[in-house]
Nucleic acid binder design. Structure first.
Length: 851
RNA sequence: GCCCAGGUGGCGGAACUGGUAGACGCGCUAGCUUCAGGUGCUAGUGACCGCAUGGUCGUGGAGGUUCGAGUCCUCUCCUGGGCACCA
């Protein structure tokens, strides 16, 4: 290739992309002689446009993938599309057209936008979850799960929009109203399909300890989500309750506070509430009110706590004379515990708020060890590990921790025949039914004589019908004139297909396994799965910390149980990295009512609106969103500066796990730096300077960079790698070394930059005499002999404040260091002839003189 | 409301296991240079006091432990993420 005279990404980036493609460097190949490495970024939803968050995610994955390739691994780095979901249906409703066309068009567009980034992706493995070849295999697994007893049906509540006659997602509920209709949302019960993830609660919890290469915060979040708690379950005897409700089962994690109970409360969905509702108009009204609240836990917890006295009483198990009123309350969850609790206002804030509102007693059970209590508006809830004084102890000593008191209380209750200690989990079974079109059909058939019958595997995939319309409310599959009609797989009589489709989380719970054999005619291929699993490095957003990752962990276990994954893959992601968001400045003015009016960056200059000169307000860091007009389109940036500038900037500033703010100035600076590196390479190539004394220093700097950059990449601190490369650039620029030495340093630079800015790295490599493609060059290893410094600087502190420093040989013995420190002028002055009170020498670090 | 993070110069951030706070970059200032069209190079740049040697203060806030705290402990304020039908 003829050398261009300047850095010209518009020409060189497509050139090198063609060269990689021709050499087939990114095609994953199983190679028994090499160790494999599977890098995976969370696959995107095909919205139609890539955004900077994608660029960040895929660039990070690319850095890992390219580094591992250079280190000699057989790398699998695939890409696909999480293609089912509501936006496609919303688009069909808003703009007409078909979700399928919309989705595949978006996929094509996004692939076109991603290609210029020069990612090391093996595109031959690409698939979309809406491909019948994919979701057909998912249906096959569903049948296997069903047979293994991992799937069942039961009633569950959904958000129901009474005007649109449709089920709403939580995000479609705004302030308790449907987002399209504006009608108040109701809770409604439907029979739905569930995966038995709660059977695995304990295992999913315990296995978290083994996930050492996951962020601790993700493990903590999952631990809390699974929510194992030890408590007491027992039955209150009721008085004045309808027949069949002589006992009320309650669960409490704080049985030690039982003597402070002043009321009992049940969920609005509790069988007792449902019974009462049929005979009591007041209860019916209240329960209906509760059901208008929406189904999310957030909605329940933030709503004002309300209740209704049922008139029913329960007898206190340790004081038969004491009767507690039973309330129906809007903050009790049916799905957790037994859907009924006893309230202890003194030691639970929600219970206290409730008690104050309904003028119930507040009875203190324990108080701080050395102070009397007196609960007013704040419940006393010390950590369970803190010793407190029990003034109304159920069991155990007077002063004990909550933990000890709970265990003592459970033991006492069990001995007295009042219930038993049980372990509860917060984790609920995974409801996968969706009353929507654009999802994977659940492959079962409803037959009048045989009941619910699994579809035969040879009939899979059960394809979505193409002739559907979205101009009417409700589920198009339900409305479709012929699709649901079928023959019962068991008796052959006419039957009806299930019209629910699967939650899209199901699609994303096994795609990583499918990538190991994307065209197999079974869900997975045993040999491929054995070779490629597990994912060595998984990278994605922190917003998936709980659901997606927990579901995938469950799915991998279920797949193993049904023979689709080897035992080693039950924890499918060996290492996880959660990246931060890409944010950007938001600029806005205000309208006459004080509401913000957002402006595009190009409409603003110098803090003023170009059109009117009005001063704009700014928010420094906000998640990019269309409505705030602060989206930076990667396609624009690539057109302006090239992909490498976008990649370099997105890696350079912030640590990968933190948010990064996109700034125009930063992008500009990134581009200038890349151009500078290119110039230095060209100068080095042209240099006829002979070898000199400076050559060794430059070689040392290069090896220092090899060490630092490698460490940065391996520790997921790409920003530190970038900083080290800036350092090397400055050193080369100032170096008096000869041409050969400079070329050698620049070749090292090319290798170290290759994972981050692969196109520029090829330019530099070619300019400075590198062999072949840098993409195929072996990763450099630092020579330890070139990393050591002979002399070091030791800071000298006087009373903990830095006052001076001394230069000493690296391995100077401690007494010599002490002598050197005490001889220092600043130390002499501080001591004024006296001996130091104390002398602290931390070898290689610091000297502290205490006077 | 509950759970999980994060707060360091004008800005993004660095600081390994408690050991020189501010690496590296942006911006800014000054100077030099120029096939000024995304210039390039050199030097300086936490705040305050001082002519200077130097000193005082400084990692959201308040306390504490330590020879020494951005880092550990207690309390507190603010910002972000998740909360099971958004993906």
């Amino acid at each position: 290739m003829t050398q261009p005279r300047r850095y010209d990404p518009a020409t060189s980036e497509p050139h090198w992309q063609r060269a990689w493609q021709e050499a087939g460097v990114f095609t994953a190949r199983r190679d028994p002689d090499r160790e494999k490495y599977y890098v995976l970024e969370m696959f995107p939803y095909p919205s139609g446009r890539i955004h900077m968050g994608h660029v960040r995610n895929y660039t990070m994955g690319d850095v890992v993938a390219r580094t591992k390739m250079a280190q000699g691994y057989a790398v699998l780095h695939p890409m696909g599309w999480d293609a089912f979901g509501m936006p496609a249906e919303n688009a069909a409703m808003d703009e007409g057209g078909h979700p399928k066309d919309w989705t595949y068009r978006n996929i094509a567009d996004m692939r076109d936008q991603m290609t210029p980034l020069g990612l090391s992706i093996d595109w031959s493995r690409e698939f979309a979850t809406c491909d019948p070849e994919y979701y057909g295999q998912q249906q096959a697994m569903f049948l296997d799960f069903l047979e293994a007893g991992l799937v069942y049906r039961r009633n569950a509540t959904v958000n129901w929009d009474p005007v649109d006659m449709t089920v709403l997602a939580n995000e479609q509920v705004e302030d308790g109203k449907g987002w399209r209709s504006g009608a108040p949302v109701e809770r409604r019960e439907l029979t739905q399909w569930f995966f038995r993830i709660s059977d695995y609660s304990e295992e999913l919890l315990e296995a978290l300890d083994g996930l050492e290469n996951w962020p601790e915060k993700v493990r903590t979040m999952q631990r809390n989500w699974i929510g194992r708690s030890r408590g007491l379950q027992f039955a209150f005897a009721t008085a004045g309750a309808p027949e069949g409700f002589e006992a009320l089962e309650v669960f409490s994690t704080r049985p030690d506070t039982l003597l402070g109970a002043t009321f009992a409360a049940i969920s609005a969905d509790h069988p007792l509430a449902k019974h009462l509702e049929r005979h009591d108009a007041e209860v019916a009204d209240f329960v209906a009110e509760c059901r208008r609240m929406g189904t999310s836990e957030e909605a329940l917890e933030t709503a004002e706590k309300t209740g209704l006295d049922t008139g029913i009483k329960v007898r206190h198990p340790f004081d038969a004379a004491l009767e507690l009123p039973v309330y129906i309350a809007n903050f009790i969850l049916l799905d957790y515990g037994t859907g009924a609790i006893f309230g202890v206002p003194a030691h639970d804030q929600r219970d206290l708020d409730f008690a104050r509102k309904y003028e119930l007693d507040v009875i203190e059970v324990f108080e701080p060890k050395d102070a009397p209590l007196g609960v007013h508006d704040t419940a006393y809830v010390p950590p369970k590990t803190e010793p407190v004084r029990y003034v109304r102890p159920l069991a155990g000593g007077e002063i004990q921790t909550g933990e000890a008191a709970i265990e003592a209380a459970i033991a006492t209750c069990e001995r007295n025949g009042v219930g038993q200690g049980v372990t509860q989990y917060r984790l609920r079974d995974w409801g996968i039914s969706r009353q929507r079109y654009w999802g994977c059909p659940i492959p079962v058939v409803h037959c009048e004589t045989c009941g619910v019958v699994p579809e035969r595997k040879e009939n899979l995939p059960i394809r979505l019908p193409e002739d559907v319309s979205f101009d009417q409310p409700g589920n198009p599959l339900d409305r479709h004139p012929g699709w649901a009609r079928c023959a019962c797989p068991q008796c052959g009589a006419e039957a009806r297909r299930e019209t629910d489709t699967m939650d899209t989380f199901v699609d994303s719970s096994w795609y990583f396994a499918r990538f190991t054999a994307p065209r197999a005619d079974t869900p997975t291929d045993p040999d491929a799965a054995e070779y490629w699993m597990n994912v060595d490095q998984y990278i994605g957003g922190i917003e998936h910390a709980i659901l997606h990752l927990l579901y995938s962990r469950f799915f991998a276990r279920a797949m193993h149980r049904t023979g689709h994954l080897p035992a080693k893959a039950i924890e499918p992601f060996d290492a996880l990295f959660t990246q931060g968001m890409v944010t950007h400045e938001v600029t806005f003015t205000r309208d006459e009512r004080g509401r913000p009016v957002y402006h595009l960056p190009e409409e603003v200059a110098g803090g003023k609106l170009k059109a009117t000169g009005e001063t704009v307000e700014t928010i420094a860091q906000a998640k990019m969103s269309k409505s705030k007009k602060n989206v930076v389109d990667p396609v624009t940036i690539i057109g302006q500066y090239g992909a490498d500038t976008a990649r370099w900037f997105i890696l350079s500033d912030s640590p990968p796990e933190r948010d990064v703010e996109w700034t125009a100035a930063g992008a500009e600076a990134a581009h200038k730096h890349l151009a500078r590196v290119w110039r230095l390479a060209a100068e080095a190539a042209d240099s006829a300077d002979p070898a000199s004394d400076a050559d060794t220093a430059l070689e040392k700097a290069a090896h220092r960079a090899i060490h630092d950059v490698t460490r940065g990449i391996e520790g997921f601190a790409f920003n530190k790698s970038v900083a080290a490369l800036y350092g090397l650039t400055n050193t080369v620029a100032k170096s008096e070394a000869g041409g050969d030495a400079k070329c050698a340093a620049m070749r090292a630079m090319a290798q170290l930059m290759a994972p981050m800015v692969p196109h520029l790295a090829e330019d530099v490599w070619a300019l400075c005499g590198g062999d072949g493609l840098v993409a195929e060059a072996r990763w450099p290893v630092a020579d330890p002999a070139l990393l050591v410094e002979d002399e070091i600087t030791l800071p000298v502190q006087i009373n903990g404040k830095r006052r001076s420093e001394i230069r000493v040989a690296r391995d100077l013995p401690q007494p010599e260091i002490e002598k050197a420190a005490l001889a220092d002028e600043a130390v002499q002055r501080a001591l004024g002839g006296a001996a130091p009170r104390k002398l602290i020498v931390v070898p290689g670090r610091i000297v502290n003189v205490v006077v």
